[in-house]
Nucleic acid binder design. Structure first.
Lengths: 350, 350
DNA sequence: TTGTATGCGTTATCAG
DNA sequence: CTGATAACGCATACAA
């Protein structure tokens, strides 16, 4: 009972140039040229080919094209977690630019693990990507693979968590100023003993934000104490890690009265843990942190945050990458673009 | 001063079988077979090839393989928004399964727009994907493209927002029961006039959830009134749309005293808008909704929610898709898997 | 203006 | 056991 022309369950097969050529009694090269609107093809033939191609809905096989051109028109992205507002906004930025240039995006997640990052890297480069956008994982201390791949000529752009030692374009937010403003805000609110919980200490963003925090304290004549500075090696991925950091801070002789949280995950973790311990946050303890999540405005009391220009960062990084990819001659001068952060102050009382 | 062997800025070029063959004085076919550990190659040659390949870090070119095998080892995914916890959890589920089978995942977002959905569909199918995972956009009423592609033999699996009329595997949550339990919970809390804000009325999930809501009211002897039921055509993507729905509900002669929100975005929207209007939510007005976001536990008062098993749904859908892709003979019997939802009750007082 | 031949990297088929 | 050749779909140098 099956339709003989379209057997049930047949494999999905696309039309090729060959099919068109056969149907029209032309050679594949003529068809190919006609489709690309080459000057050497007669208008008449072009019309014929175009119309037929349209009719049978011809789509060039991108895989064959990739093989021929040695270009996959695909860029790889490695981020920590898709389920993190900062990264999902970044991805939106990346996609918005990639789409306009007809580039394909393959996203992979490190889940803040070095091993996963390396296997993703391996996977992506073996997938013949044309370029790579990366924000390194919190665990990564060994950058040799990145260096190697970069040295081999793979266009890459680092964003957010960058690697200084690798010579390529980078895009970051003005983490120093963001952290400086955040800390200053807490100080203006009257907090005196401001602690900070940072990301893994090797991360560029952690260093920059710590520097901003430190500078703000100094500028306001407050002491900078090591006992008020904690690191989360895994970027706050695990609740244990966060709890440990907080516990250490609060078993200090001098307890902190406020916290500057250095990342999305950490901001969220502080809120969650301290509230579950019965503190009113912010209030009993001051809190301000980096966060691109939408939830902070729904909190009561509302939380002030530092937002990164994630979407723009994704866009910019992608623009730079595509430029690297498409440039004929190798680029020798690499830029580091710095975007402004935005402090969103919510709730006027302490 | 440049190293003559590795000219600065050279293009990223991978080693091929040819390089190995040349270096070892063998033919490409021999090398190919040796690498695949074929029985017809002498152990000695195998060792030689393997070792050399290892040494120069040979990676087979997946594009060439794809061309040959007419399989890209890539699956396409179309979701509404990556920046939505439900979808990002889904994606994590998808990736976790795809990775174990060495499949590649290309994600695209419809942003709840039919046009974007269609252009993504077009893009993905032209990218020679081996299969497709889809949750249709809130705007989609015309399923002809999906049908066409499915009829052409493209393996596809629908999840969450499914299309009944297309014959293929589907994975959904038990939306009826979820909605039933949510509504019953509000009733138990003593609310009498429970409204609901649904997704676009054509969406399968909207229908199922509405049915659960209706059944719960009826079972508890409460009236079902059209004036208490609102739809968001764009899934609550736009604040205007949400505000309009709420306004309509609250300008009713009989105002609702509680709301069952039928999706992540709608739950969030209700919270945001009603709170900005000065209501204490939940409290002044009861609220329970579908939500996979992490923020709900941070709210004060805490919000009860219905969680979908997103990760599991992504996993299951991917398993089914890969099975479809890899099955030699066409599958004729398609299943619809239904996963349980989970109601998370927070805050014991009304 | 159009057709033929070649190659991109790989594997399968067929010869040796 | 190993090598030559064709093919996947496309674009292009070269012929006609």
């Amino acid at each position: 009972m099956a339709d003989p022309g379209e057997p049930d369950g047949m494999k999905y097969e696309a039309v090729t140039i060959k099919d068109i050529a056969k149907a029209l009694g032309l050679s594949t090269s003529t068809v190919s040229r006609a489709l690309r609107d080459s000057y050497e093809i007669s208008p008449e033939t072009k019309r014929l080919v175009m119309e037929y191609a349209e009719k049978i809905n011809y789509q060039p096989n991108p895989i064959a094209l990739s093989l021929k051109e040695k270009k996959s028109h695909t860029i790889g992205v490695i981020v920590g977690e898709i389920a993190n507002s900062f990264f999902s906004q970044i991805i939106n930025g990346i996609e918005s630019v990639a789409k306009t240039q007809n580039y394909n995006v393959i996203i992979s997640q490190s889940h803040e693990s070095f091993d996963k990052e390396m296997s993703n890297l391996q996977y992506l480069t073996s997938r013949s990507i044309d370029g790579l956008l990366i924000s390194v994982s919190a665990e990564t201390t060994d950058f040799s693979s990145f260096k190697e791949i970069s040295a081999k000529g793979m266009p890459m752009v680092f964003f957010d968590r960058i690697v200084d030692e690798i010579d390529t374009h980078k895009v970051i937010a003005d983490n120093f100023t963001g952290a400086y403003n955040a800390t200053s805000h807490l100080i203006r609110k009257g907090y005196k003993r401001i602690a900070t919980i940072c990301n893994a200490s090797i991360l560029s963003i952690a260093k920059e934000r710590l520097a901003g925090y430190t500078a703000a304290l100094k500028d306001h004549g407050l002491p900078v104490e090591d006992s008020m500075i904690r690191y989360c090696k895994h970027g706050g991925m695990f609740r244990d890690e966060m709890e440990e950091s907080l516990k250490e801070l609060f078993t200090n002789k001098k307890k902190p009265d406020a916290i500057f949280a250095s990342s999305d995950k950490i901001t969220m973790g502080c809120l969650r843990i301290l509230r579950s311990q019965g503190y009113k946050i912010p209030g009993d303890i001051g809190l301000i942190g980096f966060s691109n999540g939408e939830f902070t405005e729904l909190l009561d009391p509302p939380l002030s945050v530092i937002k990164q220009p994630a979407f723009e960062m994704g866009q910019l990084a992608t623009q730079m990458l595509l430029q690297l990819i498409e440039s004929k001659n190798p680029v020798h001068i690499f830029e580091t673009k710095v975007l402004s952060t935005e402090m969103i102050v919510r709730g006027s009382t302490k």
